[in-house]
């Protein structure tokens, strides 16, 4: 069986995404927290858009359930599928650099 890696940082395969959706963890905010997609070193720049493309291709009611029930607003129709909240910093920043930027040198 071939493996397709979707998120390299958190080592998530595409089949794990399908399985998470099937188990009811399919809205993007929950999916991110359940599989780890988008929470690793690259913070989603490699995997998030691919993830959204796959979510948009799913279309049966069973696939639109999320943890704990009906969440059509969260899953949305493909046009409503969105990125999860993007959080700072934009780039991973070394603590030394953060403090230097704030005027504290070692």
């Amino acid at each position: 069986m071939t493996k397709t890696v979707l998120c390299h940082c958190e080592d998530v395969e595409i089949d794990e995404l399908y399985s998470a959706v099937k188990q009811g963890y399919g809205d993007i905010e929950t999916l991110k927290r359940y599989t780890g997609i988008g929470t690793g070193k690259c913070q989603g720049k490699c995997c998030l858009v691919q993830t959204l493309r796959i979510l948009a291709s799913l279309d049966t009611p069973a696939e639109r359930k999320t943890a704990g029930g009906d969440a059509s607003e969260l899953m949305g129709d493909p046009r409503k599928i969105r990125l999860p909240t993007i959080r700072p910093p934009l780039l991973p920043m070394r603590i030394d650099d953060i403090l230097e930027e704030n005027g504290e040198r070692r």
Binding site: T39, G40, K41, Q43, R87, P88, P89, P92, M93, R94, I95, D96, I98, L99, N102, E104, R106
Partner: peptide
Amino acid sequence: SSPDFLFRYAAALREIFPALGKARIIRQ
């Protein structure tokens, strides 16, 4: 999220774990 927190947190973390100055903050 606030930059002020990021600065205060980074300072507190590096004070307790000096080696973490080389670690990156990825998300707040």
